[in-house]
Computed example of a mutant assay.
Amino acid sequence: MFEEFYCLKHTPFSRDIPTEHLYRSSMLEEILGRLEYAARRQLFAVVTGDCGTGKTTTIRSFKNSLNNSRYMVMYLADSKLTPRHFYKGLLEQLGCEAKFYRGDAKRQLHREIELMQGIHHLQPVVILDEAHLLDKEMLEEVRFLLNFRMDSKSPMALILVGQNELWDRLKLQSYAAIRQRIDLQCKLNHLDRSQVGEYVKNHLTYAGAEHDIFSDNALDEIFKFSAGAARMVNKVCTHCLIYGAQNGKRIIDDHMVKLVIQGELN
C-alpha cells in the first residue's frame, strides 16, 4: 500500500531483496571475504552475532557469491539436529539415500564427497545455521567429521552460524577440542548511527525512491529504537512508511517515528 504513495517500484525493507542490492557495510565485506577464503581453502569457520544483526542475510550473500561450477553448497537449519539426521540431510542434498547407521552414513558421505571432488571438481561447502541450538553431541560430531585422512585434509568447508551464545559455549573448557579446530571466527556487530542512515538510504534507493523520505532526526530515533539491529531497522521503517502513507505524509520526521514506536512497537 505505501509503495504506491511513495512511488516505489519495490518494497524497500523486505526479506527478499536480491543480494546484489543489499547494504554492504565494511563489516559485511570483510566477513564475506573471510567466508570465501574458507570455501576456497576448505576451512572450518564460525559466524556469530546477536539476534537480528543479519546472519542469515550474510549467509545468503555468501552463497550467492560462490561460483556454482566450483562449489556445492549444502545448508541445514534444525535446532533438533542429531548426527544421524545431519548425515541424512547432507546425503539427501547430494541425491543419495542415507544408510541407517551413523558410521555407515558418515563413510557414505565421505565417499560421495570424494566423488564430487574427483569427478565433478566441486568443492563442498556445508552451512549449519542456528548452530547455537545444537547440543554437545552434534558439535562433537562436527569435529569427528573433519577427521579425514589422518588430519591431512579437510573434506569440506564447514560454517557454523549462530547467536553469540554459540561462541560463549565454544570458549568453555569442555569444548576445547572443537574450538581448537576452528580456522576462522567472524562476528557480526550492530550498525552504528552512520551505517543505519546508509542502510535506510540504500534500501530506499533500491526501491526506487527519488528523494529522502526519513528526516535526519527520524533516523536518530530509528537508530535509538533498533540499537543498530538490521531486522529492527526494517521493522520500524516499514511501520513508519505504512503510517506515513495512511496519513498523507511525504516526509517522515522524528515525531512520527516516536508515535509509531509508542503505538505499534512497544
Rank of each mutant, 00 (worst) to 15 (best):
L66F: 03
R41V: 12
Y87T: 02
L22D: 07
E30S: 12
D50L: 09
V73S: 11
T19L: 10
S65E: 08
G33Q: 10
H21M: 08
G54N: 03
G89Q: 07
L43C: 05
S61Q: 14
F86P: 00
T58S: 10
A45F: 01
T11Q: 12
K88T: 06
R84S: 09
I17G: 09
N64Y: 13
H21A: 15
M74E: 02
S69R: 15
R84K: 13
L90M: 11
N68Q: 14
K9S: 11
E29D: 12
R15S: 09
F62V: 07
S79F: 09
L43D: 07
R15N: 07
F86N: 00
Y37P: 08
T58W: 02
G89S: 11
L35K: 01
I17W: 07
N67C: 09
D16N: 13
T48Y: 07
L66Q: 03
M72R: 15
P12N: 03
D50T: 02
S65G: 07
G89V: 10
R70G: 13
N64T: 12
D50K: 10
H85W: 14
L76S: 03
E30K: 15
T48S: 11
G33W: 07
R34S: 04
L76Y: 01
Q42M: 12
Q93S: 05
T82E: 05
S26T: 15
R41I: 10
R24H: 13
L22C: 15
F13T: 06
S69F: 13
N67D: 14
L90D: 02
L81H: 04
R34H: 08
C51Y: 12
